[in-house]
Simulated scan of single mutants.
Amino acid sequence: MKKINALMAVTLTCYVNFGLAGPLETLNEYNLVVLNDLTSSSEVEGKTIVAGDLSGSNSNYGTHLPQNDSSIGSVLVVGGDLSSGTNVNANGHDVVIAGINNGNINSNSVSNDTTQYDFDLIKSEFVNFSGYLSELAVNSTLLTSTNDQPSAASFKVGDSVGSDLAVFNITSASFFENNLVQQYDIDLNGQSPSAIIINVSGETVNDSSLGNAVGNITSDAFRENIIWNFFEATEIDLVKQINGSVLAPFADLTNATPIEGSVVVNNFDQNGEVHDSLFTGVISYDVDTVNLTEPVTVPEPSMLFILFSALVGFVFWRKQQA
């Protein structure tokens, strides 16, 4: 029995270290996931993963997390380099920098071990997840001005949603670039959706002419259930606060004001805080079966590799018993 346990432990480690959990679990644990490079002069209240390089002036991570809690793990993981002149404050937590560290880090400990983070797999999963959300059936409607006069807009949840997903499909031009939207909110319409998905089409997004969010959407109870899915955006410029998680796996994002939720983007020029209203909504999604877009090619662990790893564990166990 001890032999079997040793083999199972080694094999399980291979799987655990192959990558993170699915995208929903990642959105719930990580405040910011940058699939390429991050340039920051601001802060992230929760945990951050950067697959590429980290640069900028002064940036802070884990600012709302309890200090000296080993169960939190590393609050900042960087798969590339930390640029010269970059000052990182981890607020008493651990940091991982896989590449060259030419910056200054205030941290409990700094390591370069990223073996448990498969950055290609993380990207592939979020690309697929964004594609999956973009093809959900629409059941809710954005109501805006109909007479060319400035007015309030409302994301009205459909009256048959119940406790299922509320799904909106909008264009960037109809909402973010619509100067007739003086303010906006969400109308639950007597429903209790498990999550609110706002699919936004358009390659470029700029919210400089958009009015402010008001009412329900500005509370944690609402924005922790919202995903803004910019499924085809390549450039996003936010100067207004956005409430809810931002999913934009192909986009270069720039912000000037806080984002109230989890963020997943390709590149990020961060000039405003990312607050820890992490996504907690419920979505039925199986990362192992959904593949609606062309994912990043990621090598699967072969059975030969798993058996070899188990054999290594067995030999090590035998030596320990000798």
Score class of each variant (00 low, 15 high):
220 D>M: 10
16 V>T: 13
240 K>A: 05
180 L>K: 04
14 C>Q: 15
49 I>P: 09
32 L>H: 09
298 V>N: 07
154 S>T: 15
95 V>E: 01
237 D>H: 10
63 T>Y: 02
244 G>S: 01
241 Q>A: 14
239 V>S: 12
206 N>D: 03
308 F>S: 11
88 V>P: 15
181 V>I: 15
254 T>G: 10
52 G>F: 07
54 L>K: 13
28 N>K: 15
146 T>W: 09
142 L>W: 03
319 K>Q: 07
191 Q>N: 12
178 N>K: 03
36 N>Q: 08
228 W>S: 12
160 S>I: 11
115 T>D: 13
154 S>N: 07
184 Y>M: 01
250 F>K: 13
24 L>Y: 00
199 N>V: 01
242 I>A: 13
131 G>T: 00
42 S>V: 04
77 V>K: 13
23 P>K: 09
127 V>S: 10
20 L>A: 07
258 P>Q: 11
36 N>G: 03
56 G>K: 00
154 S>Q: 11
224 E>A: 12
116 Q>K: 14
144 T>C: 06
213 A>D: 04
223 R>M: 08
97 I>W: 11
129 F>K: 01
179 N>S: 15
16 V>H: 11
198 I>P: 14
80 G>T: 02
105 I>S: 12
121 L>Y: 15
199 N>I: 00
165 L>M: 03
28 N>H: 13
258 P>D: 08
136 L>G: 01
105 I>M: 11
96 V>Q: 09
104 N>W: 10
294 E>C: 08
178 N>W: 02
220 D>W: 09
6 A>M: 06
278 L>N: 09
53 D>T: 12
303 M>H: 14
42 S>W: 08
198 I>H: 07
288 D>F: 13
315 V>I: 10
22 G>F: 06
294 E>T: 15
304 L>I: 14
294 E>G: 08
210 L>H: 03
202 G>A: 02
302 S>E: 05
73 G>R: 07
235 E>V: 13
185 D>H: 04
250 F>C: 03
20 L>F: 05
196 I>M: 08
56 G>Y: 00
308 F>V: 14
239 V>E: 09
74 S>V: 08
204 T>S: 13
304 L>W: 09
90 A>F: 02
63 T>A: 06
183 Q>I: 04
61 Y>L: 00
72 I>C: 04
238 L>T: 00
256 A>P: 05
269 D>T: 15
269 D>E: 15
210 L>I: 01
245 S>V: 00
315 V>N: 08
221 A>E: 08
10 V>N: 09
288 D>M: 10
99 G>H: 00
247 L>E: 01
260 E>I: 11
252 D>H: 12
187 D>Q: 01
272 G>H: 05
29 E>N: 10
263 V>W: 05
320 Q>W: 07
153 A>Y: 12
29 E>F: 09
233 A>F: 03
268 F>M: 03
302 S>A: 07
19 G>D: 06
180 L>I: 00
162 G>K: 04
213 A>C: 06
255 N>C: 00
256 A>L: 12
